[in-house]
């Protein structure tokens, strides 16, 4: 995918660009908000990654300008500002996601992937499927190989989120944000406990595991390669 990165700190720019390139993306970089608005309106990008605080026109203003001009490319704001109001301001300014510095490269890569493949209309999907695992979104039922699996409400939410992003890494903070609406990291292995329960229910009696742990990053649900 082709990404646009606005970041004025050279070390961070190199680090982020290298990480994204390593994940198979093509990354265009720029240092000023003006450059960013010009590039983003001329070229079709999959995701815009803007640092909020750059000299001159900052990332948030550049994004506002683009949104006003009708550019709806998904955007992630990178920021050192960790206040609730800062995030609200960022999201109101047209950002689709908000990542607080410092962050792990895996976190950014996972979020870029999640944003880029955001389905146009979620409502039309009624069944999620990964290999023989099926989730009926209308009747709220989950089956694996035809066998009914009983899930608690939050387990079901967690599974739905994983399945909507099948094949992609879903990080712990992404889960906390989506399933529990929490925008901070409680620093304990809370998610691990949830995932082990979910796994126990999903993988019981199955030959091949569907849920994979990605070390140092998060989890991924994926059909086994045939």
């Amino acid at each position: 995918m082709r990404l646009l990165l606005l970041e004025d700190d050279e070390a961070t720019r190199t680090y982020v660009a290298r990480a994204l390139t390593g994940a198979g993306h093509v990354v265009d970089t720029c240092e000023t908000g003006t450059e960013a608005t010009v590039s983003a309106s001329k070229t079709e990008y999959a995701v815009l990654i803007f640092d909020r605080m750059v000299a001159g026109i900052d990332g948030l203003s550049a994004l506002r300008e683009l949104r006003a001009a009708g550019v709806s490319t998904p955007a992630i704001l990178l920021t050192a500002m960790d206040g609730v109001s800062d995030r609200v301001e960022g999201l109101n300014g047209g950002a689709d996601d908000y990542l607080v510095k410092p962050f792990a490269a895996t976190e950014l890569i996972a979020r870029v992937a999640a944003l880029a493949r955001r389905p146009a209309s979620i409502e039309t999907v009624t069944t999620l499927r990964v290999a023989d695992l099926e989730m009926d979104l209308i009747r709220r039922t989950v089956t694996r190989g035809g066998r009914r699996i009983d899930l608690q409400a939050q387990e079901a939410k967690l599974l739905e989120y994983l399945m909507r992003h099948k094949g992609e890494i879903v990080t712990r903070t992404m889960m906390l944000e989506t399933v529990w609406s929490l925008h901070f990291d409680p620093q304990t292995n809370l998610i691990e406990s949830h995932m082990s329960r979910l796994r126990a229910k999903i993988e019981r009696g199955a030959d091949v595991p569907l849920i994979h742990t990605v070390r140092g990053a998060g989890y991924r649900i994926e059909a086994p390669a045939v």
């Binding site: 206040g83 109001s85 609406s181 409680p186 406990s193 329960r197």
Partner: peptide
């Protein structure tokens, strides 16, 4: 005093429930 402007009525019960559910498995 940051974020003061965002204060509004919130459901304490729902929040407690949600966070408790998050911690229960652990």
């Amino acid at each position: 005093g940051a974020g003061r402007q965002l204060l509004g009525p919130i459901d304490l019960s729902e929040i407690a429930e949600r966070v408790a559910n998050l911690y229960r498995p652990l």
